[in-house]
Each structure stands twice: as C-alpha cells, then as structure tokens.
Write a protein that binds this DNA or RNA. Sequence first.
DNA 1: GTGAAAGCGCTAACAC
DNA 2: GTGTTAGCGCTTTCAC
Lengths: 344, 344
Amino acid sequence: MQPSRPATIADVAAAAGVGVGTVSRVINGAANVRESTRATVQQAIDRLGYRPSHLAAALSRGTPRTVAIVVPHLTSPSVVPRLAGALAVLGEHGYDTVVCNVDTPAQRDHHLAALAGRHRAAGVIVVSLRLTAAQAELFRRSGLPLVTIDVVMPGVPHTVTDDVAGGRMAAGHLLSLGHRRIGFVASQRRLTGYRQAVAAAGASQDPDLVRRGPYGPSSAEALAAELLALPDPPTAIFAASDTQAIGVLAAADRSGVSVPGDLSVMGFDDIESAALLGLSTIRQRLWDSGAEGARRLCALLRGDRVVPLRQQLALEVVPRSSTAPARGAAPGAQLAATRPAIVN
Amino acid sequence: MQPSRPATIADVAAAAGVGVGTVSRVINGAANVRESTRATVQQAIDRLGYRPSHLAAALSRGTPRTVAIVVPHLTSPSVVPRLAGALAVLGEHGYDTVVCNVDTPAQRDHHLAALAGRHRAAGVIVVSLRLTAAQAELFRRSGLPLVTIDVVMPGVPHTVTDDVAGGRMAAGHLLSLGHRRIGFVASQRRLTGYRQAVAAAGASQDPDLVRRGPYGPSSAEALAAELLALPDPPTAIFAASDTQAIGVLAAADRSGVSVPGDLSVMGFDDIESAALLGLSTIRQRLWDSGAEGARRLCALLRGDRVVPLRQQLALEVVPRSSTAPARGAAPGAQLAATRPAIVN
DNA sequence: GTGAAAGCGCTAACAC
DNA sequence: GTGTTAGCGCTTTCAC
C-alpha cells in the first residue's frame, strides 16, 4: 500500500514517534543515535517506503553532491578513458557526475557559464580545454573548486604530462633505431622535446621535416604526404597524437610507402586502436589522469589544500610494429617488435 | 565589489524595489512582466552578480532538471556514440546529464537503487542493461520516467534495432558473395537472422559452424580459431559485433589465413575502428540511438505519451575490404570494395 | 502586472 | 540522545 503522496522525513518522524532530527541522523548514519531508536526509525522508513530527497538535502546543506566534468569531443578516443577514470573515483566518493560534452566554442562557453551558476555543482573538472581569462576569473570569484586535466591553468590544480619529455622519448626511440631524418607532424610542446633529442643526437634538423597543422587525422595525412613527397624524405615520422599517426599511416599506404619497412611511424597517447594497428607510441595513462584529477577535486572539496598545483604523470615508450631499425642502421640499433598485423 | 554573501532572489527584489515573485518571473522569462520592470530587475541582477540557485529552483518546482543515463562499460566503443547522442539532445532540452558507468553487476544495482531515490533525476535512460524484476518494479512504482536503449523492457519505451534482420543482412551479404559455409560467433538474436538467411539460400547449416561464447574479442578469437581448425572450415565468418570481429581477424592472422582472400569476415555495429580496419559490417546508427532515446525521454518528461513503445532503428550493410567473393563463386557474385589496408 | 505568503523536504544549531 | 526550530532560495497560488 503506497501512500499517494511520497513520504517525507516528517511522516517518518511521526510514524516512528520521534523528531525529524533523529530521522535525519538515522538516514545519514550519525553516531549518536540509540540502537533501539535507530531500529524503530528504520522500520518506519521501510514501512512508508520513504526515500530521502536529494534536492532538499543538498539545498539545506548548502551544496550539491554533484560534480561536473567538461570534456571536449567525447567521441575522440583519448578523452573516454579519462572520463571513465574520473567517473570511477567520483562515484566512489559519493558524487554524481554531470558530463558536459563540448564540440564547439559556443558549447564550451555555454556549459562553463551554466556551471558557474549557483548550486550547479560542488566542483568542476575541465579536461583539455583552455578557459578564457574572463571564465577563469568567473570561477575564481565564484569560489567553485576547479581542477584541470591535460591543460595548465595558473593557480588551478592540474594533472598533465610532460610533453617535452614525451617528444624527447619519441624522437629518442626513433634515433635509437638508427633514424637520422625524422619528420614531425603538429603540436608545439612535443615538438620542443623532439628538437632537443634530435639536436642532441646530431641528427637532421631540416626545418622541412617539421609540419604543423590542425588536429585531426585527415590534416595529418596531408602533412605526412608532403613529407613523403620530399626529395629526401624522412625515414621516420613522429606524430603528436595517435589520431594523427593514423593519418600518417594512411598517407604512407596511399603513397605506397611500406611501414615499417620504408618508414617508421610513432604516435602519442596509446589510444585503444593503437594496439589494434600495431602503432608504436608514447603511452599516456589516460584513465589514471582522469582518476587523479578527480581525486584532487575531491581533496579540494574536502577542504584540503592541493599542492603542488602541478601533478605530472609518467610517460612510457610502447614499441610496436610501426617502427623498425632504419635501413643500413648500425647493427647495434634496437630491434622493434614484430608487427602483429591484424589487418593485412 | 562582491557581496560576501551570495545574492539571493530576495536581495535582487529589494535592490530593484519589487517583490520576489516578479524577480522570479524575470528570471524564467515569464510573459506577464512590464518591460520597464524587467529592465529594472535585470539591472539589479547584473549589479549584484546574482545567480539563481539551481537547487532551490528544483526543490521548489518539485523536480530536478537533471537526467541520469546508465551505461555499461564506458570504455567499450559502441556505447560512447550512444552517450554522445543522448548528451547532445538532453543538453539542447536544458537538462544536465549525470552519467552512471557500470562495469559490474554490483555497480549496476548500486546506481539503479540510488537513481530510484527521490529527486535524484527527472528521468532515466538505461543503455544495454537488463533490469531485474525488482528494479523494474521499483521504477514503475516510483513513477520515474524511464526509457531504454538497445534493450527491451516490457512497458517501457525502448529504442532498439532489429537484430534478426541484421543477422539476415550480414548473412545475406556473404551469401551474395558466393559463400556457402559461413561461420557464426555469438549472440542469440542475430543468430536467428543468420539462420533464416542461410536456410533460405540453401547454404550449409552445419551446426559446427555456430559458436557461442561470452562477449569480448579474446573469446571471439578463440572461437574463430576453432572454426578455422575445422576439417572443412568456413569461407566466411559473421561475428555478432565488431569487437568480436576484431577477435576473428586476429585469429585469422594468427592461423595464417588471409582476409579476405581465404576468409571473409563480417562484423556488426560499425564502431570507429571498423573503418580503420577495413572491416565489413552492419552499421547501426549508434549516435542516433542515443539521441532518439533521449528524445523519447524528453517527451515523457513533457508529459506526452510515447507510442509505440518500441522504436526500431534501421540497419545498413557496409561492405569494406574484409569481405570478398568466395573462391570459385559464380561470376555474378557481388564485388566487395578493395581493402584500404591502412596497416600493412 | 505585481506583492505577499505558503510551501518544497531537508540539515544543523541549540536546548533539554 | 533526542526534540524543536530556523533557515536553505526558490516557485507558485492568490489577492490586489
């Protein structure tokens, strides 16, 4: 027999013959309640089919148990593991997570403005998205706890990787295979690391080997095609993301250049299809970055200070079968794994 | 100059010299407010930096503007597009979306129980997850609007595909290429369609050709290996999902069977890597299924009746380069596209 | 068109 | 330990 009107805490209190305060304590598992009282109240709760109102509790408490996470391009393969990592941690801590997917600048501004509103979320995680100065200021003034992942924001805790080191690692792997003309496709910070490694190894620093362009596999494919059409083409190409590396693979395929025979290709991120494609890459612990960002937000929410602001996650070279020793490389050159070549 | 205490609607009312009711009307864009009054109020709002409380509004209104979506295995490639589709539609309708990722039965029960709580969400979308009778009953009694995607629930609006037809389409494609011994890996409903098509074509119905096992590429790989080891192995294999088809491709590779030369492989779903791998498949409009489910939930939330309960989305054959005419097939056999072979 | 007042259902501070 | 009470900040009748 369900009551027509949903039971409230007052109904439970009345039914149990206690005050609402006591019921509240029982619901929230407060310590100072006599066991017998607790039992009585619990019975009333069960009998009435009472379910606490999330909304009323949050309003009364002054803050929702909800966190918002803003992610760019949910369909892009590198953000999903991050989101999953964050959801897992947030869930463990009892937070609901509202996900804001951003595909356009307008959407970004819309979501950010909405989240800065009162009682929208207890805290916010921003992934891979740069805020405008005004937006940053809005958050600062609203006092809304904020952390970022994969993007640096002054004064805000952020979880990132050392892209410069990553660039060095990628170039280093190729150099160790004996490559001396290494092409590069996109992204400033990783380029810096690439340059450092290439310079240190005394390999070719031909500016023609460096191509920058918008993110995305198709543009990377075009840039790679340019590199391959060079009079003295590179023997290896480092792309700043796996997505772009896939474009490079496509360009190689289209140009009749065999990988890794004629060309070694190196990606960055280690997204899921990288393994499928046998793509050598620099692994970034994407799931962990989401989890860590969430963990830091929870700390903030608990009132803890989060220091240092910058948390840097480790990177790792994952050699697969898209990289191989350069033809005629010194015999000491490191051997790459054989290519699994699921597709053929 | 920020007030130390966040401005409330009462502050705005006082500042504008009007009643709170009027301020509320302005905030919510109600029609019956004189233009001059609206302007005055708006000024006060801006001056005080007032931001309405989401929580208080929802509590007062009696329902949150939040929808929950429960998805299994966020990291699995077929759910992400669905989630993205749902988020897009819900966002357009002004709903916040809390995402509940479910990796274990315990998590599923936990989330479902929590969502059934009062004022947790205005409505719920469940993706690819079967509820227990008790859970279904809980939702029914709580009156919480519910829709499902990719799973049938009696009495609940659901957006699904015709798996039987899909199975027929897949088998049909392979049959049209001249294959007569077609293996099958996993999933009951799609199997039915496969059987229908195979029977109608008078092709081999050897029960040895049908293998069922748990979802996942590794188990599919094992099952496919069994099929390939048969004395009279199939010339084509239909896997009930792209993920499993990828396992089949791996098995073929490992057994030295060339695709599509010796073996045609057909998947189901058209996940993102299907295109990368040149996998022929049955395309399911995943994004649309999410969007449609969300649309139906919004209708429910608006108070509209949603009929018919079952919404069936169309499927489509996508021939790529993992399928080719059977050796010695009749000359009339349909030609498959050439394999792009990004990886090689 | 606009103001006043009664909730929405809970938490937390305070008294007993 | 437990009851009482005052908010939390808004929406929504209902008068005027």
